[in-house]
Simulated scan of single mutants.
Amino acid sequence: MSTLLSPLKIGIIGTGYAAQKRWRSLQTTPATQVVAIASHSLDRCLTLDPHHQAAHYDQWSALLQHRPLDLVIIANANHLHGIIAHAALTTGLHVVCEYPLALDIQLARELVALAQTQQRLLHVEHIELLGSLHQTVRQHLPSLGRPIYAQYTTLSPKQPVSRRWNYHHQEFGFPLMAALSRLNRFVDLFGEVAQVSCQAQFADIPDTPYYRACLCSAQLRFRQGLIATITYGKGEWFSGSERSLIIHGDRGSLSFQGNQGILTQGEQQTPLTLGSRRGVFAKDLQYIVDHLKADAPLYTTAAASCFALEVAQAASDSARLGKTIQLSRNR
C-alpha cells in the first residue's frame, strides 16, 4: 500500500452530512485530492462542490470507472454500502465506508475477506473511538475496578420527520445496525458479547416503508460479566435530546450528561469536561493517509466493526423473535 503516489485520488459517493465532513477534511489535506463525486442528483454534487473541482456523476457505478482513482469513500444510504464496497474492491480500489459496512452480516464478512484477497484497504469509519468521550472513558476506566453495569442513551427529536432514507425501514436498516457506533463503543471498551436481548418500537406511516419515530433498547451481557443497556431513539416521539453514559464498577463510577462528566470514587467526586467533537473526521482521514503511505496502523479494523454488526444483528433478531440471542465465541 505504501507504493501509492501523492496525492491520493479520491472519489466520494454521497453528499449528505458525512460526505460534507469528508469533503471539508480533504480540502485541507495536501496528500489527498477529490477527483470525483457521485450522488443521485447532479444538483447535490454542485451543493458539495460548487466550483466543480471534481468530476460529477449521478450514478455511483460511473464514479467507480473514473480514472485516475485510488480510493472511494462511501457515504450514502446504508442499504447501498455493501453493494458499492463489493464493486469498488472488485475494481481494485481502496475503500473507506461510513458505518455500517453492510446491513447483512454475511455480506460484511465477505467484504473483509475480499479486501484481504485484493490486498486493498477496507476501513469502516468509527470516529466515536477518536472522540473526547471515548478517550476520557478509556483514561478513567481502570479507576472503576471491575465493570459491573453500563448504560448508554441517545435520543434525538425531530419535528416533523421528512420521508428520507434515514426514516425508511429497508434503506436505514434496523436502528442499532444503522447507529452502530453505540454498540461498537461498548465492544471496544468491554470486549466480546455473550448474549443480547432487545425490544423495538416504530411509529410507522401507514401504507409506506417510512416511520415517524423509533425506539430501540438492547441489553447486552459481556463474557467478562458486565451487563449493559443501550437505548437509541429518534423522531417525533421525543421533545428533547439526551446523550448520557453511565458505567459502574466495584470501585467507582463514571457518568456523563452531554459534555459534562463525573468520576465518583467513594465520597470523592471529580468533575470531567469533554473536549469538542470537532476534528474527528480529520483524525480519521490522517490515519487512512498514514496507513496507505507508510503502513502505519489504523485505530480500528473492519473485522472489529463486523463483530459489532453481528451484535446489532442479534439485537434485530431478538426484537423480531421476542427472545434472547446467544452469540458464539468467534473473536
Rank of each mutant, 00 (worst) to 15 (best):
L5D: 13
L5C: 07
L5W: 01
S6V: 12
P7G: 07
I10Q: 01
I13G: 02
I13Y: 01
T15I: 12
A19P: 01
S25I: 00
T32V: 07
A36T: 11
I37P: 07
H40G: 01
D43Y: 03
D43G: 07
D43N: 11
P50M: 06
Q59E: 14
Q59A: 14
A62E: 15
L63E: 06
L63Q: 05
L64C: 02
H66K: 08
D70Q: 09
V72M: 03
N78K: 14
H79C: 07
T91D: 10
C97G: 03
I105C: 12
I105T: 15
Q106C: 10
A108N: 06
A108K: 03
L111E: 00
E125F: 00
H126V: 03
E128C: 12
E128A: 11
G131H: 03
S132M: 04
L133H: 10
V137Y: 05
Q139V: 04
L141K: 06
Q151S: 10
T154I: 15
Q159R: 11
Q159E: 13
R164F: 11
R164M: 14
W165K: 10
A179S: 12
L180N: 05
L180H: 02
R185G: 00
F186E: 11
D188E: 15
I205H: 10
D207W: 05
D207F: 07
T208Y: 06
R212P: 07
L215W: 11
L215Q: 13
S217G: 02
Q219R: 13
L220R: 01
F222R: 03
Q224L: 12
Q224N: 12
G225N: 08
G225A: 09
G233I: 03
K234V: 05
G235F: 11
E236S: 11
L245P: 00
I247L: 14
G249S: 03
R251Y: 02
Q257V: 13
N259E: 14
I262E: 15
Q265E: 14
L274D: 03
S276L: 07
V280K: 04
V280R: 05
F281P: 02
I288A: 07
V289L: 05
L298V: 15
T300A: 06
T300N: 13
T301N: 06
T301E: 09
A303R: 05
S305V: 00
C306R: 01
L309H: 02
Q313D: 11
A315M: 01
L327Q: 04
R329F: 07
